[in-house]
Design a protein around this nucleic acid. Structure first.
Lengths: 108, 108
DNA sequence: ATGTTATATAACATACTCGTTAAATGATGA
DNA sequence: TCATCATTTAACGAGTATGTTATATAACAT
C-alpha cells in the first residue's frame, strides 16, 4: 500500500518528478499537469495513475476535471529510508570513515 | 554521472536496497553480497552493476574477489531531492510544535 | 439529443528489467 | 600447464514500462 519499491520506481521518471514539483505549488487538474509536457495526454494520464498507485498523489473528480494533490506520506517513507544512510555523508562520519580507511590499509 | 533517474531506479529494487544495507555495515565482496539471497550469483552481479552505474557503490578488484563499498553521494542527492518536500509532512508537526510552545511546555 | 471538453482506456510497438543457465574471463596455486 | 574459485558476460524468455493513436466515458452546455 505504501511500498518503497513503488515509491522509488515512481520517482525514477523525470516527468513524474516534474509533476510532483508542480503539485508542490498546489493542487492542479490532469490537464494543467499535462500542458507543460510535449508528450500526449494519455501518457500523462498514465503517469498520474503510477503516482496514484504509489500513493504519491490523490486524484478526485471535480466535475469535468480530475483534481490532483500531493500526498506526503510515501515521500516521507522514502526520506526515512534514505535518512538511515545520512551518516555516510555527514561530517562526523567523514572522520570515522577516514579512520576506518587507515585501519583497513594497514592490514593488507 | 549521478543521475536521479538512475538513483531512484536502482533503489526501486528490494534486493539492491538489501545490498546497500549490507554495505552500510562495511565493505564486502560480490560473493559475500550474493550469499544471503536465493537468486543466482550472476543475477547479483548484475544488481551490482546497476548499483555501480548509479554511482551508489564502487567495485574494485581485490585479487580473486571484487570488493564493493557504498558511495554516499548519490544517496545524498536523492535525499536532497526529497528534502524539498519535507515541509509537506512536517507541517502538522510544526502546528503541534507551535501549539506546545504556546502551552509553555518545556519538555525535551 | 448533440456537440464540446476533460480524462481514461484499449491496442499496439519498442525497449528495458530481471531472472535463468551456459560459457568466458581472471586470479590462485599445485 | 591444469584445476579451481570468483566473477562477469552472453543468450534467452517472461514480464513490465513508456510512448503512440484511436476510441470510450463522463460532465457540461445548448
Amino acid at each position: 500500500m505504501m511500498n518503497l519499491d513503488h515509491t522509488f520506481a515512481a520517482l525514477a521518471d523525470p516527468t513524474r518528478r516534474a509533476i510532483l514539483a508542480r503539485l508542490a505549488l498546489g493542487e492542479a487538474t490532469a490537464g494543467e499537469l499535462a500542458s507543460p509536457f510535449a508528450i500526449s495526454q494519455p501518457a500523462i494520464s498514465r503517469h498520474l495513475k503510477v503516482l496514484e498507485d504509489a500513493s504519491l498523489i490523490a486524484r478526485i473528480r471535480d466535475g469535468q476535471h480530475m483534481r490532483c494533490r500531493l500526498l506526503p506520506e510515501a515521500l516521507k517513507s522514502a526520506n526515512d529510508w534514505l535518512a538511515f544512510y545520512s551518516r555516510f555523508w555527514s561530517e562526523s562520519f567523514d572522520r570515522l570513515d577516514e579512520h576506518l580507511k587507515q585501519e583497513g590499509s594497514d592490514d593488507e
